[in-house]
C-alpha cells in the first residue's frame, strides 16, 4: 500500500542517512499528541493513595518519595520521546528499536515502586518483554532477508509472499508482547496498582500508540 493512502499526503522527510523519518498528517498528529502528553506528565506531580485501615481510625497513605519520583519521571520522559520517535520513523529496524526501548523503560517506571505485588507483575512483564525481543527482531530479520531492504518507502512497493507474511505476524507477536496488549494485558493491569498515576499513564499511552503504528506498518508491508 502506498504511504500516502494510509497517512495522508507526505508533508516532508528528515533524512538521517538510510534512516528516513517522514511526516504525514496522521503521523504529525500522533507525534504532537504524544509530545504534548509527555510534557504534561513531565510537569505534573504524583497523587497520594489513601487506604482505609480496619480496627482503627488511621488511614494509610502511600506516597512517592522524591528519589523514586525523579527516577520515574526521567524514565517516563524517555518513554514518551521513544514513542514519539516511533510515530514518525520510516525504517523497520528503527521502529523495532523504538519498541524495544519503550518496553525496557516501561519496566523501569514500575521497578522503582515499593509494592511487592506490583514488582511481581513487573517481573512477569519483564519476562514477556525479554521473550518478545526474539519475535520482534526475528520478524524484522526475516522481512529484511525476504525483501533486501528496511525502508518503508521501498517495502510499500514490494509484493507480499508467505515469507514476508510469516515475518510480519512474528513482528506483530513481538510488538504485542512488548507492549502488553490482550491477551497478555494482565501483567500490565497489575502494574498500574501503585501511586504515581502520570508515570503509569505513559506506559498505557505508549502501548496504544505503538500498536496503532505497528498495524499501519504491517499494512504498508503486506498490501
Amino acid at each position: 500500500m502506498d504511504i500516502g493512502s494510509l497517512g495522508g499526503n507526505l508533508l516532508g522527510i528528515i533524512p538521517l542517512g538510510d534512516i528516513i523519518l517522514y511526516l504525514t498528517p496522521l503521523h504529525l498528529f500522533m507525534l504532537i499528541v504524544i509530545l504534548l502528553f509527555t510534557f504534561l506528565i513531565a510537569v505534573s506531580r504524583t497523587e497520594t493513595q489513601v487506604e482505609a485501615s480496619f480496627e482503627g481510625l488511621k488511614d494509610n497513605k502511600s506516597t512517592v518519595g522524591i528519589a523514586e519520583f525523579k527516577a520515574r519521571r526521567f524514565l517516563a520522559i524517555v518513554c514518551g520521546i521513544a514513542t514519539a520517535g516511533a510515530m514518525i520513523t520510516g525504517d523497520l529496524f528503527n521502529f523495532i528499536l523504538f519498541v524495544a526501548l519503550t518496553g525496557i523503560v516501561n519496566i523501569g517506571i514500575v521497578s522503582a515502586v515499593k509494592q511487592i505485588d506490583v514488582l511481581n507483575a513487573a517481573f512477569q512483564y519483564g519476562l514477556i518483554a525479554m521473550m518478545a525481543s526474539l519475535p520482534l527482531f526475528g520478524g524484522g530479520a526475516i522481512i529484511l532477508a525476504a525483501t533486501g531492504t528496511l525502508s518503508f518507502f521501498e517495502l510499500a512497493n514490494i509484493a507480499s509472499n508467505p515469507m514476508i507474511l510469516f515475518g510480519s505476524i512474528l513482528l506483530l507477536i513481538g510488538v504485542a508482547g512488548e507492549t502488553g496488549i490482550a491477551p497478555f494485558f494482565a501483567t500490565k493491569a497489575e502494574m498500574f496498582r501503585t501511586p504515581g498515576s502520570p508515570f503509569i499513564l505513559i506506559i498505557h499511552l505508549s502501548s496504544l500508540f505503538m500498536i496503532i503504528r505497528a498495524i499501519e506498518i504491517l499494512l504498508l508491508i503486506l498490501t
Binding site: 542517512g17 524514565l75 524517555v78 525504517d91 528499536l97 523503560v105
Partner: peptide, 25 residues
C-alpha cells in the same frame, strides 16, 4: 556509524536505560 548511525544511537540508548534501571535498583 554513517548510513544507519541513528540505529546505533538508539541501541546504546537501550543499553544505557537498562543500566540506569539496574543501578537505581
Amino acid at each position: 556509524y554513517y548510513t544507519r548511525g541513528f540505529d546505533t544511537i538508539l541501541e546504546s540508548t537501550i543499553l544505557m536505560m537498562a543500566f540506569v534501571i539496574a543501578s537505581w535498583l
